[in-house]
């Protein structure tokens, strides 16, 4: 069924994550993404994994939903992991050697890191953006973050309005597509058999009515908006005012720390060697 497609699915709730300012959440996502791409040690990944786990727990979104979210990409992850495992050539002796297949430790490590990166990336960003932020607040957040660009005459408001209208009409259009499909099925249309050309042709009776009605909708909506005194963002107020609260700053601060910590893990081995050197010298003197 088409209606199973969930686009940017939002789960209403009142968790600490839900209550954050959308701009804060966008910033947090960016920090988190940077951290994920910087991480390249097991400690760093273990650390970020714990952070993600923590986010899932406080968001109170069920693990089932989260698993469903990453299901579509599992195949790609597994496939690229395998490529990494088999194609990476390491420095030392191969771990496994079987005819022409040589598997090195580096390959396995790389595969694990890459898979973790993709999975954490998806869970982390959807935790902040799609699952806990309603599309409309997200749009408000983007508009507000981009508003400095208005100075150079970029139509930030129009862009945000377009996005929110698109979000408003996705369910309507999905419903409409189903209705049209049923109507054409009732006239004997067949969408599921025949070669690729026949199938593509079979879409015409769906696409034409869908376009016609979408244009009609767009037209009527534009008129209705004008009649409700819409004229862009001239002298416009907003019902939802985005306000940073102390908690938003705390979160950003914590995530900045997390990012720094991740960066630090990069130098951790070096630091440990240096520290032990210093300690050695100190102890030697004593």
């Amino acid at each position: 069924m088409i209606s199973d497609i969930t686009l940017g699915q939002f789960f209403p709730g009142n968790s600490p994550l839900h209550r954050l300012d959308p701009r804060c959440k966008i910033i947090l996502s960016v920090l988190f993404i940077v951290a994920i791409f910087i991480a390249d040690t097991p400690i760093a990944f273990a650390f970020l994994f714990l952070v993600t786990l923590f986010l899932i727990i406080i968001s109170r979104i069920s693990a089932k939903v989260i698993f469903k979210g990453i299901k579509p990409i599992i195949f790609v992850v597994v496939f690229t992991s395998l490529l990494n495992v088999f194609l990476t050539v390491g420095k030392g002796a191969p771990l496994v050697e079987f005819y022409f297949i040589k598997i090195y430790t580096e390959g396995i490590v790389r595969a694990i890191f890459m898979s973790l990166r993709v999975i954490l990336l998806i869970i982390g960003t959807s935790m902040f953006l799609t699952y806990t932020t309603s599309p409309i607040t997200l749009t408000d957040g983007i508009e507000s973050l981009l508003s400095p660009l208005k100075v150079i005459k970029l139509p930030v408001h129009a862009f945000a309005m377009m996005m929110s209208i698109a979000l408003r009409f996705i369910p309507t259009l999905v419903e409409e597509t189903e209705k049209i499909m049923n109507a054409q099925k009732s006239r004997g249309a067949d969408f599921s058999s025949g070669g690729i050309i026949k199938r593509a042709k079979a879409l015409i009776p769906i696409l034409v009515p869908l376009f016609v009605s979408s244009f009609k909708r767009a037209d009527e909506l534009a008129v209705a908006m004008e009649c409700r005194c819409y004229r862009g963002d001239i002298n416009r107020t907003k019902l939802v005012k985005l306000e940073y609260k102390i908690r938003d700053f705390i979160w950003i601060f914590v995530f900045a720390l997390i990012l720094s910590a991740t960066i630090l893990t990069k130098f951790l081995p070096d630091m440990i060697t240096r520290a032990s050197e210093v300690l050695d010298i100190l102890f030697y003197h004593i």
Partner: peptide
């Protein structure tokens, strides 16, 4: 349907 603009 064609006069509602918001998702809430």
């Amino acid at each position: 349907d064609n006069q509602l603009v918001a998702t809430v």
